[in-house]
Design a binder for these strands. Structure first.
Lengths: 241, 241
DNA sequence: CCCGCTTTGTGCTCACTTTCACAAGGGCGT
DNA sequence: ACGCCCTTGTGAAAGTGAGCACAAAGCGGG
C-alpha cells in the first residue's frame, strides 16, 4: 500500500514554505498599515530576513500573484496568504493550564492578528477556577469535553505542568481536537492524524548554549568562514506582543 | 572573500541533530531518575519520538559511546550530550521585559535542568522596577549595559513588546551578547556573528491552522496517503514546567 | 574457547531545501 | 509603437536530512 507520492506534490505546499508564510504575512500587514501599495520580492525578503529567490519560490506555490517589473500588490498578497493559511475563517482555541504561561498566552494581544479566538481557559486548580483572565473566566478542566464540543474548539494549547500534559492531550484528542500546541516539556504521544507542535524554552536555550560554546570554544577566530549566517530563522514560534 | 565551505563540515554537528540533543538529554535524565542504567537506541528513540536509526546517527556525531549488543550507558551518555551542548558550564541569562511572559519565563522551574542561571530581570516600566519576581528584583533597563558586564550575561531573552525588541536587541549586541532568544513578533536585525532564535505563538497557531484547514478542506479522505505522519517533531521550542 | 544473539555504527539512496542564474513578461518613457 | 529596464517565476545544481539495511562488534551461555 501507501503509494509513494509519484509527482513532486499533489497541490501541496512544502512544509518549509508554510512555516515562512506567517512571517511574510506579518511583514505585509506592516507594509499595508503604512500605506505601501506594492512590494518587490527583494524588499520583502530583506525585511523578513530571507533570500529573495526563496521568497519568490515560496509565493509561487500559491500562484502567480506578482507583476513582473513591478512586484506584488500588498493587499492582494495579504489576502492570498491569509486564505492559504486558513485565516479567512476563525479558529477556536482552548488554553489548558492557566499558570504564569497560560496567563501570558491568554493576554497575548491581537492573538495572531485575527483568525484565532480564545474559546476557553481551563485549569485543574479549583482555587483559580472562576477567576477572570484576559476577560475570560477560568473553568474547571473537568468540563473539557463539554467545552470543546460547545465551543467547537479546533486547536488545543497545553500550558500545564509536564506531568499533566499527556493526559490533557489524550482528552483533547479524545473529543476530536486534531491540532495541539504543546508548551509542556514532554514528547506527546498522539495518533498520526493529529498535528502537534511544541514550544520549549529549555531546548531553545540549550541550542543557543551549543553555539555559544562553539564561539568561545576552540579559539578566537578562524573557522568563522565555514559557518555562514546565523540561526536567524532557525527558531520557530513567537509569543510576546 | 567568503570561501564557500569546501568540505561538508569542519568537526561540526548537523543543525538538525543539535536541535534533537536536548530532547534526548531530557529523556535520558528521566531514565536516570528512575534508575535505568542502560538504554538501547530503539527504546530511547521510542520515548523521544524519533526513528532509531536517526537517533544512532545523531549520537554517532558525538563519538562512539554505545556498546554493541547492549546499548548506551545512561549516565555516561548524559555527560557526553551535556558536554556537547555546553551545559557543563553555567550560562548567565538576562530576561528583558517582565510582563506576563517575562514572569512566566522567570518562574520557569529548573530552568532547563541546570546550566542556566537567571542573572537579571530588566524592564522599562518604573512602576514594577524593584518588584521581586521569582525571588529576583526587577531592575531598570537603563542599566542594561552595566548588568550585562557585571553578571557576564551571555544569553539575552527578549520578552518585550514588539516595538521595543529591536532597540533592546541592539543594546544587547552592543555590549557583547551574541546569543538572543526572541519572543517578540518581529524579525531582529543582527550582525552575522550573533545567533538569534525566535519563539512565536502566532506563527505556530497559523501553521496549525494551515494543516487544520487541509484536513477539513477538500473533502473527507483520500490525499491522506501522500502526506505521511504528522508534524510530531516539527515545532521547536518549549516553555511551561 | 567458540557460537549465536543483540544492538551499534554507517554506506547508500532518496526526498526535501536552498540558492543561483536567467529567460519570460510587463510597464513606462520616448 | 518600440525598446529598455526592472522584477517575476523557475530549471537546474548543490547542500542537507531521513531512513533502510547490513556488516561489525560486544556479551553470555555452553
Amino acid at each position: 500500500m501507501t503509494r509513494r507520492t509519484p509527482r513532486p506534490r499533489e497541490r501541496g505546499i512544502p512544509e518549509a514554505t508554510v512555516a515562512r508564510l506567517p512571517v511574510y504575512l506579518r511583514a505585509l500587514q506592516a507594509l499595508n498599515d503604512q500605506g505601501t501599495p506594492t512590494v518587490s520580492s527583494e524588499d520583502l525578503a530583506a525585511t523578513t530576513g530571507v533570500n529573495s529567490a526563496k521568497l519568490r519560490k515560496d509565493l509561487s506555490h500559491l500562484g502567480s500573484y506578482g507583476t513582473r517589473g513591478v512586484g506584488y500588490d500588498v493587499d492582494y498578497l495579504i489576502y492570498q496568504v491569509s486564505r492559504e493559511l486558513g485565516l479567512t475563517q476563525d479558529w477556536s482555541v482552548a488554553i489548558i493550564g492557566i499558570g504564569n504561561l497560560g496567563r501570558a498566552l491568554a493576554n497575548y494581544g491581537g492573538f495572531g492578528s485575527r483568525g484565532f479566538r480564545i474559546a476557553a481557559l481551563l485549569d485543574a486548580d479549583s482555587s483559580i477556577v472562576g477567576d477572570k483572565v484576559a476577560g475570560l473566566p477560568v473553568r474547571h478542566i473537568e468540563i473539557l469535553e463539554e467545552v470543546v464540543g460547545v465551543e467547537d474548539v479546533s486547536i488545543g494549547v497545553i500550558a500545564t505542568p509536564a506531568a499533566a500534559a499527556q493526559t490533557v492531550c489524550d482528552r483533547l484528542v479524545g473529543c476530536g481536537v486534531t491540532s495541539v500546541l504543546n508548551f509542556a516539556p514532554v514528547v506527546l504521544n498522539v495518533p498520526a492524524a493529529v498535528d502537534v507542535r511544541k514550544v520549549d524554552l529549555s531546548i531553545e536555550l540549550q541550542i543557543l548554549a551549543f553555539h555559544e560554546q562553539r564561539k568561545s570554544d576552540g579559539h578566537g577566530a578562524s573557522e568563522w568562514f565555514g559557518m555562514p549566517g546565523s540561526l536567524r530563522d532557525a527558531g520557530t514560534s513567537d509569543l510576546s506582543g
